[in-house]
Every structure is written in structure tokens, then in C-alpha cells.
Design a protein around this nucleic acid. Structure first.
Ligand SMILES: [Zn+2]
Ligand SMILES: [Zn+2]
Ligand SMILES: [Zn+2]
Ligand SMILES: [Zn+2]
Lengths: 149, 149
DNA sequence: GCAGAAGACGAGATCGAATCTCATAAACAT
DNA sequence: ATGTTTATGAGATTCGATCTCGTCTTCTGC
């Protein structure tokens, strides 16, 4: 859980996209955008609700799921499923901030990582694949340092 | 849904692994192993139950989940989560048969693919990653030919 | 073979994340 | 400010996954 708070204006960008898509400004949306912008990696709906309930404005489950769906639809948030049947969400960022995930199958630890070679291989792949690629997601499973003994 | 029925003896191999791990032979396990061995790609628990109920021996939900857990634990089956909150399972195979997944986010179509460049990038990555890698899973999201218009 | 012990299996209860409903509150246009 | 439209929340509901526990099956020792 690297707490790399990167303020890249993502929240403002996302808010603009919402407006352009015809949505109004609401307290729940604003709170969610701010929270997501501070995260270095993906959060589950439950984690989002707890985080917002603690500090900030409390937001209901229904709103979280509804807003995440809207944000995903306009392409500013990505749904990530890393096992344990829990869906997580994270801000979609351009160059810096873009990363993939290592998951420890024993303790569930989630670790973001980046790799230029991998990105190159994927962009090459995108051309000859029978799919208009929107986002790619790489999940590596294994045992983390702690769990591998 | 490429119906590449590849009989590589995977079922027998898996059955042997189960025995070595101390499990007995049961009707549910046998039926599940045979079904999985015929698949070119991942199936959900529900799909497995339907397939077994139709032809072959019917198997209960409880047994499917229980057996899949055992098979995953001994490393012959891999859990795959490709969105829509549904868990799928597929046989883990060595060289041929090893593949990754393209998912259409609109219609849910699932397409297996292989890419040597990607595999190379991943094996290079494995060395400097802070995790003992067991399996890797690459999911590419996008719009399929049909949905992309 | 056969009896007993250990494990496999299934029906149904239970859990919990995600979704749906609908009444109320908040945002926006005029 | 007023009316109209959209956003939000509490609670009900859905449905995949898990648990429970009694019965059936496999295996072991005789
Ligand atoms: Zn992440
Ligand atoms: Zn771990
Ligand atoms: Zn597959
Ligand atoms: Zn499609």
C-alpha cells in the first residue's frame, strides 16, 4: 500500500468529463473523486465507503456503485478484479501512475508495479489482436516476500 | 469459443496429483476433471454444473466449488476473474494450451490468445519483482469486432 | 468378500457483495 | 424564488459463493 499521493488534477479532469457527459455536480460524486485522486492503487466499494464515512462526507453504497459505473463508462475509472471475488476501482491515469498488479494469493497483499518491457509488448500486441483495446490489465499471482517465508 | 478439444492427458495427470495429495477417487471429481480437460478456455461454476447435468453425471454446486478449490490448491487448475463478478476456472497446461484472455466489455465475449513477446517480457519481469511468481494472468479489455461496429 | 473408519458428496441454509426501488434532497434553468 | 430534473440514500432484493451436516462411497484391514 504505497501511499503515493499524486495530485495530477485527475479529479478536476474527471469532474469536467462528468459535466460534459451531462451529469450534475453532487456531493457524493465530488467526495468520491477526491478520494480516488489521492489513492496510489485500487480500492473496493467497501473501502471507499469506510474512507468517506470516517473523514469527509459519508456516501451510501448505492451511490458508490452508481458513481463508479458512471466513471467507468466515461473512461476515467477502471474496474479491477484481483481475486477473492472483490471488485476494486482505480483512477485511470496517463503515463505516470499507470501500473499493474502483483497479488499475493496467500495473504491477499496487493502491490502495484510498472514495467516498460511489458508495456512495449502489449502495445505491439494490440495491433494484431481481434479487439479494439481500451485498457489492459496485468495481474501477477504468487507469494509475497512475507508469505514466501 | 474455439472448441479446441485437446486431450493431453491433463485429466489423468490431475487425478494422479489428487491421489498423491491424499484424496480419494469420487464420481464428482472424475466428472469435473473430464469436463475441464475438454475445454479450450475457462468455465464458470454455473457452466460446469449445467454441462455436467446435461450429459454425464450431475454434480452439486457444493462439490464443484469444493473440488475446484482442491484443484487450485494442488496447482492443476487456475481461477480466472474476467469481470462481471464471475469466477471462472481452467486447466493449467504447460506450453501448448497456455494462453491469456481478451474480454469484450460490452457483450462479455471471451477470447483466448497467445503472444510470445508478452511471455518473454513476463519471464524477464519475474526476476526483479518482489514476489515469488506462481502464475500470471493477462486480461485485455476492449470492444470486440462485432461490438466495435 | 465384509465391516468399520475415513473421506466424498449433496440438499438446503447462510453469507455478503452488488443491484434495484422508490421516496426525498439537491442542482440547475428561468 | 419556483418548478423541473437529477442525485442520493435506506432498505429490499438478487445471486454467486460458502457452510452445515446427514448420507453415501471409497478404501483398509480382516
Ligand atoms: Zn493499482
Ligand atoms: Zn503475502
Ligand atoms: Zn482461457
Ligand atoms: Zn463484444
Amino acid at each position: 500500500m504505497t501511499p503515493t499521493t499524486q495530485r495530477s488534477g485527475w479529479a478536476e479532469q474527471a469532474a469536467r468529463a462528468l459535466t460534459e457527459a451531462g451529469y450534475r455536480r453532487g456531493g457524493a460524486r465530488r467526495a468520491i473523486l477526491e478520494l480516488l485522486d489521492e489513492q496510489a492503487c485500487a480500492l473496493s466499494a467497501q473501502e471507499i465507503q469506510r474512507a468517506l464515512g470516517g473523514r469527509r462526507r459519508a456516501v451510501s453504497r448505492a451511490s458508490i456503485y452508481r458513481v463508479m459505473e458512471e466513471l467507468e463508462a466515461i473512461g476515467v475509472v477502471q474496474r479491477v478484479e484481483l481475486g477473492q471475488g472483490i471488485v476494486r476501482y482505480e483512477a485511470v491515469r496517463r503515463g505516470p501512475g499507470h501500473h499493474h498488479h502483483l497479488v499475493c494469493d496467500r495473504c491477499g497483499r496487493l502491490e502495484p508495479f510498472t514495467d516498460a518491457g511489458l508495456e512495449r509488448a502489449i502495445s505491439r500486441l494490440s495491433d494484431r489482436v481481434p479487439l479494439k483495446v481500451s485498457v489492459h490489465e496485468i495481474v501477477i499471482h504468487g507469494a509475497c516476500r512475507v508469505c514466501a517465508r
